[in-house]
């Protein structure tokens, strides 16, 4: 299974990189949000209760990463749905490989793309004056949480594609990305959110992911925040993979 999964991951990665229309949203939307928010809301850091940060860009990097990773999940879902629509998925199903390798290959490619997304936003941040307060260990933690989260969102995208079987339905969840983001602490500190947004954010796993990514950027490592962020990211990944494998099995059972 390892050989088949790796071959399919390599192929998914290659074709994603050859499809600029899929890659562009992962970079352009979050970069625009990052630029607009950083430019227009930088005085937010003066608000009472706002965490001490070197600059608003430092605070916003986590939001940009979360947004990009979620859009990566939508992209993985659309790519899978297009394979189903175009019949390539059937070709894979008719191959003598463990069928679970089919979603796993796509999800593994999603992990690699997630790492590239995190590196891109860290690089953009550093170029425009952000600081990584926790240094190299902080970068590694950001990478770890980012890749686990991106993997989970890719798996959820694949799950949705396997259920919906068409790209337009998967594309339809695009606005949901923003809803989930805005009801989390990705763009604003949870303690400054008013009720009921603060309550929803407390139950939104993305809040813990965003805080886990943000914490090593704006401050020295905080164990509890790092653990919460890691647990949330790994939970999203585990849940996503489990659901995508279940969706594949369900689809094959229905055939």
């Amino acid at each position: 299974m390892r050989r088949a999964s790796l071959a399919l991951a390599r192929r998914a990665l290659m074709t994603t990189l050859r499809r600029p229309q899929f890659l562009a949203p992962l970079v352009i939307f979050p970069s625009l949000f990052l630029a607009i928010n950083t430019g227009g809301l930088h005085r937010s850091t003066d608000l009472p209760g706002f965490p001490h940060v070197h600059g608003f860009l430092d605070f916003q990097l986590a939001a940009a990463m979360c947004q990009s990773l979620m859009l990566g999940g939508v992209g993985a879902g659309i790519a899978t749905a297009l394979e189903i629509e175009g019949g390539f998925f059937d070709r894979l199903v008719a191959s003598p490989i463990p069928r679970v390798a089919i979603p796993l290959g796509r999800i593994m490619a999603g992990s690699v793309i997630s790492a590239m997304q995190v590196v891109y936003f860290l690089a953009i941040g550093l170029i425009f004056g952000a600081h990584i307060a926790a240094g190299v260990p902080g970068v590694l933690l950001v990478m770890l949480i980012g890749v686990a989260t991106g993997t989970g969102f890719c798996a959820l995208g694949v799950m949705l594609a396997l259920r919906a079987r068409n790209a337009s339905t998967v594309q339809g969840i695009f606005p949901l990305v923003f809803v989930v983001l805005f009801v989390s602490s990705a763009f604003f500190p949870r303690r400054l959110l008013s009720h009921p947004a603060d309550w929803v954010a407390a139950y939104n796993p993305l809040s813990y992911v965003a805080d886990g990514i943000r914490d090593p950027i704006i401050s020295p490592l905080t164990t509890s925040t790092a653990i919460e962020g890691l647990i949330a990211a790994l939970a999203i990944a585990a849940l996503g993979i489990a659901l995508s494998v279940a969706a594949l099995r369900g689809r094959l059972r229905e055939a």
Binding site: A7, T15, F88, S95
Partner: peptide, 22 residues
């Protein structure tokens, strides 16, 4: 199968090698 289900973004050689691996 009906309607050759190929990945249009891959080259012929890449597709053949993927199929061989699978």
């Amino acid at each position: 199968l009906q309607e050759a289900a190929l990945d249009l973004l891959m080259t012929g050689r890449e597709l053949m090698e993927l199929q061989a691996t699978l």
